[in-house]
């Protein structure tokens, strides 16, 4: 069954005709060409496919295109601020929070979700927020460090207005 949907994707409104059963993940990667969002497990355990749907982080591998009419979606491609990388992205690079990189877009989106709500998270809160994001390079220590550094930078930016 084909469906006409209108969505806002990374700030731009677009109209699409899509098969209702197409996963949001496949819609993004294969039809729209935004390949930054990754598929890990396909069952909502690993978080590699995390995107924002109506302002909230979700697993795009568990959502059908037919559910999306009117939705607002932000992917990793929409994270940077103008031409600049987001402070979270910069912190992951600076701290070595990226190893093979496959989990990274999901980690970044989930870190953004956390820092949008809490600019001063404890290590415990960071690990809690990232419970649904698996890194098989076993690099969590540097990821947690990167989120802490990003939080410090975002606090500094807010203080300076």
């Amino acid at each position: 069954m084909m469906m006409k949907i209108r969505i806002t994707l990374n700030g731009k409104s677009i109209s699409l005709e899509v098969p209702a059963h197409r996963l949001l993940l496949d819609l993004l990667r294969d039809e729209i060409g935004l390949t930054g969002t990754k598929e890990g497990c396909g069952t909502g355990d690993c978080g590699a496919c995390t995107v924002f749907l109506n302002g909230k982080p979700v697993n795009s591998c568990l959502i059908l295109s037919g559910e999306l009419d009117g939705a607002e979606i932000v992917t990793i491609e929409g994270l940077k601020i103008g031409p600049e990388l987001h402070p979270i992205q910069k912190a992951f690079i600076q701290d070595g929070g990226v190893q093979c990189g496959y989990c990274t877009s999901g980690m970044l989106m989930m870190s953004k979700a956390l820092l949008d709500e809490n600019l001063n998270p404890t290590e415990e809160e960071i690990r809690f927020a990232l419970s649904g994001n698996l890194c098989r390079c076993t690099g969590y220590a540097k990821i947690v460090q990167a989120v802490q550094d990003a939080a410090a930078e975002l606090r500094r930016m807010r203080a300076e207005g």
Binding site: G44, T50, P57, V58, N59, I63, A129, S131, G132, N133
Partner: peptide, 9 residues
């Protein structure tokens, strides 16, 4: 119940 991503859905 699952991760935050799961609990949001």
């Amino acid at each position: 119940v699952g991760s935050i991503q799961i609990r949001n859905r």
